[in-house]
Amino acid sequence: MFTKKVFLWILGVILLLAFFNSFLASSHPDGLERVAEDLGFIDYSKDSFSIFSDYQLPIGDGLVATGLAGLLGVGLTYMFLTLLAKVIINQKVVKQDEN
């Protein structure tokens, strides 16, 4: 599908975006938060259960903490999707064998 060069190039861009997310991102509220503030229902918002409280790992500070959170996020997404795809393909193979 990808040449090795293209794969590494895309991966590099993803890792850079992920690591420097806090540096690159605007800290302004997004569309929904802005609407909730303007219309006065932002206070309904409750913290939910999650492993980390934001895109910030409890390691290092500033750029390191947010950068590692970004890398963890893209790593988890990549691993989860490739694993799931492999499971789906194995099921397909098993199904074909049965027929």
């Binding site: 599908m1 990808f2 895309i10 990549y78 691993m79 999707l81 490739t82 795809a85």
Partner: peptide
């Protein structure tokens, strides 16, 4: 492709 797309 699926993995990279999700990561991106």
């Amino acid at each position: 492709l699926l993995g990279l797309l999700g990561a991106f």
